[in-house]
Amino acid sequence: MNYNWNWSAFFDASPEGVGTYMDTLIQGGITTLWTALISFAIAFVLGSAVGILRTLPGRRIGAFAICYVELFRNIPLLMQMFLWYFVLPEALPTDISRWIKALPDGSFYTAVICLGFYTSSRVAEQVRAGILALPPGQRAAGLALGLSRGQTYRYVLLPMAYRMILPPLTSEFLNNTKNTSVALTIGLLEITARARAMQEFSFQVFEAFAAATVFYLAVNMISVRVMQVVERRVAVPGFIAGKA
């Protein structure tokens, strides 16, 4: 392979004039993590709400929840990024639109919101599946104890459902983290964008992408480990999720 490897390129001055390429990559890594964490928090809240709605009786609520999930699941993420970033502001009143566009970190907010909604549709499906997988007796038992429907969800159904869906939620979290890279198309300087920028100016293509690769592998491994510990900690002995 006639390619000039030069691993020391990481310590060359970056084109921004401050710090090295390594510094810009680290900054990119931090942006990736923040984007991933905040967007997943949004996805978790929205997804739980929609997922719970789908298990409630009442046709209209259910239909809304189904539409929500289908809408966000059936449009490519990149397309959704563009819709949030370029199209949505045009639909708003001029003043609000101008204010949004003048925000200094516009692509960050857009990425967080876009990923939040996108991932929420997947979380919703998991939450619904988790609740429906519980024996129907649990709901009946909760209601029979005199708990309101809200209390039944809060104290009986959800604690078990979340425990059950912990592994799929972990993989949704990892997917969400990987998906932050799509935001480079709207100018978010996350790790892949930083690697691409390093490649453009240092011309060390493979070193730059190798750094990003190592970053994603590390995030993946650490997340999986952390979730294993969490899973064990919260396990309810004797129940399905408690077998670990």
Partner: peptide
């Protein structure tokens, strides 16, 4: 473990 965007760059080059 890797985002598709990154893999697309890797492969293309």
């Amino acid at each position: 473990s890797l985002p598709l965007v990154l893999i697309i760059f890797w492969f293309y080059f």
